[in-house]
Computed example of a mutant assay.
Amino acid sequence: MHARAVAVTTTALLGVALLAPLSHARAAHGGDADGPLVVAHRGASGYAPENTLAAVDKAAELGVRWVENDVQRTRDGELVVLHDDNLRRTTDVEEVFPDRAPWKVQDFTAAEIARLDAGSWFGAEYAGARVPTLKQYVDRVEHNHQKLLLELKNPQLYPGIERETLKVLANEGWLDRPHVAGRLIVQSFSADSVRTVHELKPAVKTGFLGTPPVSELPEYAKFTDQINPSYGTLSASYAASVHAFKGPHGRRMEVFTWTVNDADTARKVAAYDVDGIISNRPDVVREAVRETVDSTGR
Rank of each mutant, 00 (worst) to 15 (best):
A55H: 06
E151P: 02
E291I: 12
L149C: 15
D192T: 13
V180R: 13
V80H: 13
R267L: 03
G247Q: 05
Y272C: 03
L87M: 06
A221L: 11
A28H: 08
V56W: 01
L157E: 08
S45C: 04
D107N: 10
E142F: 04
D99K: 15
T196M: 09
G63H: 03
M253V: 11
A244Q: 03
V284A: 07
A270M: 03
H249D: 15
L175I: 10
H2G: 07
A244K: 04
V293Y: 09
D85Y: 05
T292P: 02
V67K: 00
N144Y: 10
A55P: 01
G119C: 06
S120W: 06
G128P: 09
I227L: 08
R267K: 11
A129E: 15
G210I: 00
A263W: 04
F97L: 06
A3M: 14
A33H: 09
N171G: 11
G35R: 01
L157Q: 05
I113L: 08
A27H: 05
P132E: 09
T224V: 15
V180P: 03
A240Y: 02
S215C: 08
A3P: 09
T91Y: 08
G43R: 00
S45N: 02
A59N: 02
H179G: 14
P159M: 04
V38G: 02
T165E: 02
L157I: 03
N144V: 14
V138D: 06
V255K: 04
L116Q: 02
F122G: 11
F223K: 02
F223H: 04
S235F: 01
R26V: 01
G43L: 05
E112Q: 14
Q146N: 05
T52G: 12
I277E: 03
Q136Y: 10
F245A: 10
R140K: 10
G160L: 12
D275V: 05
R140Q: 14
R42Y: 00
E199P: 12
I278Y: 01
V64H: 01
A271T: 09
L200V: 10
T296N: 08
P98V: 01
R4F: 12
A17T: 11
P213C: 10
L116R: 05
N144A: 15
A25S: 04
G182K: 12
T259M: 08
S215Y: 05
P98R: 00
V38C: 06
R42V: 11
A239M: 07
A55I: 07
D85V: 02
V186G: 10
V138G: 05
N86W: 03
F122H: 15
G35A: 09
R73G: 10
K153M: 00
P212I: 05
G247D: 03
Y272P: 07
P212D: 13
D139Q: 14
V71Q: 08
V80N: 10
P36H: 04
N280T: 10
R75W: 03
L217Q: 10
A270G: 07
A5Y: 14
P218I: 01
L13E: 15
G35V: 06
F122P: 14
A170Q: 15
L166T: 09
D294M: 11
L150V: 06
R140V: 13
G128T: 13
V260N: 04
L82H: 13
A55Q: 06
Q136I: 08
D117F: 07
N69S: 15
Y231V: 11
E50H: 10
N228T: 07
L18R: 14
P229W: 04
T133Q: 13
D192V: 07
V284S: 03
Y238D: 07
